[in-house]
Simulated scan of single mutants.
Amino acid sequence: MHRVRYEPGTGLARDAAELDGPLSFIGTGGGLRTRQWEYALGYRGISGVTRGAREVQTELKATSPDEAARLRHVFDRDVMAGTPGSIVVDGEWRTSAYVVGSEPGTIYGAYLSTTLKIVLVDGVWRRWHTESFPISVPQGGSFLDLPYDLPYDLAQPAPVTSLAGSDWFPAPVRIIVYGPASSPELSIGGNRYSFDVEVPDGGYLVCDGLEHTIKVTGPYGDVTDAFASGERGGGQGSGSYCFEPVPAGTSHVTWDNSFGFDVQWAEEEGEPPW
């Protein structure tokens, strides 16, 4: 059975709603599993293909009027604040959403059912993956001197030089560079990600290809907008675009080994797993 959870965009984490019982549950959540592309019809084809925000409906059942009222407040607060919550399936797949309405169904004692109208803001579900690329000691050097009189030490593990992406589609990516780093640059699958900025010791840079933002956080938590530092070349597909999605399959990764970094990429689907 899949676990479904609504995490509010405003308020506290304790306000989250478990939607798989016992106080409230949506069953299979059929409406959440609808999938829809937007497109324009053309001559023998389609164009402008995208997945945007869309409305879906799914039934919610509750065994407690108090819990139903609490959920209504949680949902409405997010809508009023303009801050979408997240619907999370299996603790991994998530999408941003507003619950914008409900239509009552069965009401019997403490039991009630209602059909929720939900706006899926992203139009897709995402599951994030992370691969780390730490600074590596040059091969041939000693890595760990054992406290025994042995004719060998432990060798440095082989550095990670590849990234296993989605099996099917290019994926949006976040690159996190850890300082100190001066004008860090790296390559994934033939695309160069370059940033003309200083990342201080104890700080880090985040280039978010989903939000198209670049920010540097200092060692004391101060955040600087570094959008102008990212090289954008001729845009996506040019070979030097800092927001380039990572390609499907396995990609070769290169950098000068003067800094460590993480690559986070988002697996995207039109519907959560069954």
Rank of each mutant, 00 (worst) to 15 (best):
H2D: 09
R3V: 13
D15N: 03
D15Y: 00
A16F: 03
D20W: 13
Q36F: 04
E38F: 04
A40I: 07
G42S: 10
G42F: 09
R44M: 12
R44Y: 06
G45S: 11
S47M: 05
T50D: 05
R51V: 12
E55Y: 02
Q57V: 06
A68Y: 02
R70Y: 09
H73Y: 04
V74L: 07
A81F: 04
V88I: 15
E92D: 08
E92V: 14
W93N: 02
W93S: 02
V100I: 15
V100W: 01
S102D: 14
Y111H: 03
L116D: 00
K117A: 05
D122V: 06
W125C: 07
R127W: 07
W128K: 11
S132A: 15
S136V: 12
G140E: 06
S142V: 04
P151M: 04
D153V: 07
A155C: 05
A158H: 05
P159Y: 03
S166W: 05
F169V: 13
Y178D: 04
Y178H: 14
P180T: 12
S182E: 13
S194T: 11
D196T: 14
D196P: 01
V197D: 01
D208K: 01
L210W: 09
T213C: 09
T213H: 14
T217R: 12
G218V: 05
P219D: 05
G221D: 11
D225W: 07
D225R: 08
A226C: 00
G239N: 07
S240Q: 15
S258R: 14
F261Q: 10
W265E: 00
